[in-house]
Structures are given as structure tokens and as C-alpha cells.
Simulated scan of single mutants.
Amino acid sequence: MGSDSYTKYLLKGEFKDRVELIHSHGKAEWTHNGTLSLQDKKDTNIFTVTIHNLTLKDIGIYMCAVNIFGTYYLTKVKLVVLSCVKYEEITVTGYEGANAVISCPYQKGYESYPKYLLKGECKDGVEIIRSTDGQEWTLKEKFSLQDKNNFTATIRNLTVKDAGIYGCGVDKQGTYFFTRTKLIVGTSTTPASEFENTTDFLADTRSASSAQRPSTPQSSTGKSKPSAADSKKPNTTQSDAVYQSLNPNTIQPDAVYQSLNPNSTQSDAAYQSLNPKMDGGVWRG
């Protein structure tokens, strides 16, 4: 005999203390009563009850029942309502391949309660790892918990997929005291492989720089001719005429400025022209 035509119930409590909350009506598929909804899917012989807008008062023992000629066939259900109490909110930054450590403080007296780490917001997050029996270390894949004076959760070998919102804390009989954590995972903008040949690159650059640097012009006597940079040095022993020649306001023959160009081929006379008392290499005192 099928039970599709019999009345379905949801009761709260056990034995004599149970209280009826809602029951089905005849062949109707849906029945509503306040925050309760009962759906009787007769073609599958399954009925479901939904409690909307849960509160801590909804915690307890329930009975799903079918009344067949005065006999109740019961299914016992224990309802646990999880409550989220935010302890604090922090941000943690890590980098790809490294570890992220999340600190999750809790109040004194909660040492024996289970500790957990979940990803997502507290109410709809997915639990990743949980400690049991007050043990100090709990390991699961790339995640670990350490509960010693201060509870910490570690995520090893970070990837960009690990970024997001986490919650960690204490589960006190369905009440979650948690720390909301925003994990940011940074990436390297330049792969290390691009720096493998840095030494060779710098050596090539120095060689190219040396090859392009003009050599110091030599005089007919084999001595190096003074450069413009040398003439600017205050400690160089030279006559005032040399410094005057570097002053654009001083009237000088073009040969003087040409002699400052190391790329021009000049005779010694060009450099002698820097000294107004020199004439063809003879001192004219």
C-alpha cells in the first residue's frame, strides 16, 4: 500500500514533548505555515520540509512522520544552526610559490573546541580543514592548522586561485567565532628565466661601449692631447688662457673650438693656440 494519500507531519521534540508544527492537506503538493513549507511529492514517495529564516531557537530534534491509520512512522532529524560571530577582520598578502600564515585569535576557555579554516563567507563558505580532540597540529594537503596559545592556519605553495575570502576560528557547538581574512596573492611581473643571462648581457654591453668610445687624439710627438673634460678640472695645472677658451663669451679663433673636438685631426698648433703666449711652439714672453 502506498503512503501518498496519508498525512505527513513535521514535529519538534521527542516522545511526549513533541509538538506538531505543520502537516499536509489531502492531495495538495504544498502546505505553508509561517516560516515552514511542506512539499509532498507523491510520485516519488518523498516529502520535504523547509524552515525559512533560521534562528538559534530552531536548534533541536525534529520528527518527520507519516500517520497510517493512527501509527506514526518517524524519521528523526537533529537540526544544528550555525551562527557566525566575527572576531576581527584582517588582510594577508602572499606571493606565488610562497606560504601564507593567517592568525586566528580566540578567547580563553575555548582551547578544547575544534578549530577550522573555511573559504568564502562564514554562512556559505566551504570548510577546508578542521582540528579535532584539541590536537596541536592538523594537516590536510597544502593546508595546516597549529593550535598552540595562538591558532594559526597556513596555506603552502600559493597560487592565484588561493586568493579570496577565508574564515578561521573556533566552532563552539555550532556557533562560529571567526576571523574574516582577505588573502591577496601577488605574482612576479618578470619571470626569473629572463635574468639568467644578465652577466653575459652586461659583458657584451661593456665591450660595445668600449668599442664605440673615441680614443684620445695623439700629438705628433706621441703625447696625449688634453681633452675638454680635463680642462674643466680645477686641480689641473694650466694657464688662465685655457679656461678662458672654454668661455663662449671669449673671442677665440675657430681652431680653438675645433681642437676641443677629439674626432678632428689637428696638428699641435691647434692645441698651442690655447695659449696666447705660444707661437709655433716658441714662448713669447
Rank of each mutant, 00 (worst) to 15 (best):
V19K: 15
A228W: 03
E29Y: 07
I128R: 01
S220I: 10
T190G: 05
R18M: 12
T93H: 06
T199S: 12
Y9H: 13
K108S: 08
Q107A: 15
Y106C: 14
G34Y: 12
F47C: 10
E141N: 10
S193Y: 09
G281S: 12
T152H: 08
K42F: 03
S227Q: 13
E96W: 05
N45D: 12
T44Q: 13
Q218R: 13
N247Y: 07
L38K: 06
N197Y: 12
Y73P: 00
N99G: 08
G60Q: 03
Y72L: 00
A241G: 04
N275H: 11
P253V: 08
P217V: 05
L79N: 09
N249W: 09
Q272L: 14
C84A: 14
S264P: 04
Y116M: 01
I165R: 02
Y113K: 03
L36V: 02
W30Q: 12
I165N: 03
A203L: 15
K123H: 07
L11R: 07
P105S: 11
D240M: 05
Y73R: 00
S112E: 06
Q107W: 08
T71G: 02
A229L: 15
G97T: 09
N67M: 01
T55D: 04
K182R: 10
A241Y: 07
K142Y: 02
L246H: 08
L260A: 15
S245E: 03
G120P: 00
Q212W: 14
E121W: 14
R180F: 01
T265H: 14
Y166S: 04
D200E: 10
T132R: 05
T154G: 02
K123M: 05
T187Q: 06
L74V: 13
V80R: 03
V77H: 09
Y243N: 11
C84V: 04
G186Y: 01
E196L: 05
K41D: 14
Q272V: 11
K16P: 03
V80N: 05
W137L: 11
S227T: 15
R156K: 12
G169D: 02
F201P: 00
P105H: 09
L11F: 13
S210H: 11
G120F: 01
E141P: 07
P234D: 14
D279K: 14
V185M: 01
T216C: 04
G34T: 06
Y110G: 08
G97H: 13
N99M: 08
G109D: 06
Y72H: 00
Y116N: 02
T250D: 04
Y9E: 01
S131N: 04
P191H: 07
K277V: 09
A98V: 01
S209P: 00
H52P: 00
N157I: 11
S144W: 09
Q107C: 11
Y257R: 15
Q252C: 09
G109M: 10
L79Q: 10
K16Y: 07
D162H: 00
S103Y: 15
A203T: 13
H25T: 13
K12N: 06
E96N: 13
S259C: 09
S273N: 15
E29W: 04
T205G: 00
V19R: 12
C122W: 01
D133K: 11
T236V: 14
S259V: 01
N53Q: 09
C122M: 03
A270K: 08
K123F: 03
A163N: 03
N149S: 08
G134F: 06
D4K: 10
